[in-house]
Simulated scan of single mutants.
Amino acid sequence: MQQSLSAPLAGARFRRRAMQMLALYMAAGTAAWAAPQVRVLALFEGKALLEIDGSRRVLAAGAVSPEGVRVVSASSRTVLVEIDGRQQSLGLGAAGRFGTAPAGLEVRLVRDGTGGYRSPGLVNGRSVEWLVDTGATAVALSGADADRLGLPWRSAGRPVGIATAQGTKTGHRIVIESLQIGDLRVSSVDAVVLDGDYPRSPLLGMNVLQRLTMRTEGDLLILQQMQP
């Protein structure tokens, strides 16, 4: 009788021990997926000084740290970093907030000191720093920025009247062949170019944002490419 009781007890102890080992294994697996913690210590044109899990790393654009953090692009104002396909634009002193598991490509923008969201990007392959503007119906650039980007707005643009915070201005409507926010790409984008140096930063308007999925989490603006 004693032997018949000890066998079930031993089996129960074995199962309990197995469950404990499984829990430890799952916890270890979760820890392995934990994303590095990133903080921006200094910004330069083409590189950034980052603190990654307590270690300081100077990374040029395109470089990947031993922790798996890639600098997509960097300027004196922001750096676009990527971990496991997730991108986030960070300003000086900002800390990156990434999920714990890989997901689809996305760009995460942290609200800056002015309350806006900025992101490095490209216009027809040339670098630009966007200011997200949900109040703008279309992408808007100054004539100075359009000239720097090589856009033929004077010769190819169609004159239009544009209502701005500074009153009605004359603009030129053009089509941008290829536009990027981080690694998110949008093609054939209507844009307005205003003569002079207004707006100070190129504005990423709703005609682009409506072609992406967009949500906020606290002070984060998260943009994702729409699935075809």
Rank of each mutant, 00 (worst) to 15 (best):
A140D: 02
A32Y: 15
T164W: 00
I83D: 00
V128F: 04
F14L: 14
S75D: 14
S187K: 09
R13C: 11
T100D: 14
P8M: 07
V64K: 02
G121C: 13
G121W: 08
R215Y: 09
V79D: 09
I176P: 02
D112C: 11
P66D: 12
L90A: 08
L149V: 08
L9A: 14
L50D: 01
S55V: 11
G68M: 10
A191P: 11
G104K: 15
K47E: 13
S89D: 10
Q210S: 12
M226N: 05
L105H: 08
A163N: 05
A191Y: 09
A156T: 13
V132R: 08
G68T: 02
V208S: 04
E106L: 10
Y25S: 14
L24H: 13
R16L: 14
V192S: 02
L184T: 01
G68W: 13
S127L: 12
L141Y: 03
V40R: 08
L209N: 04
V110T: 15
A42M: 09
R211T: 05
G113Y: 10
V64A: 07
V139D: 01
V38M: 11
G11E: 12
L141S: 03
Q2R: 09
V72P: 06
G116Y: 09
Q210P: 00
L50N: 07
G99L: 14
V186G: 01
G54D: 08
S188K: 04
S187P: 00
L151Q: 06
P36S: 05
I176V: 15
A34P: 01
L50M: 05
Q227K: 11
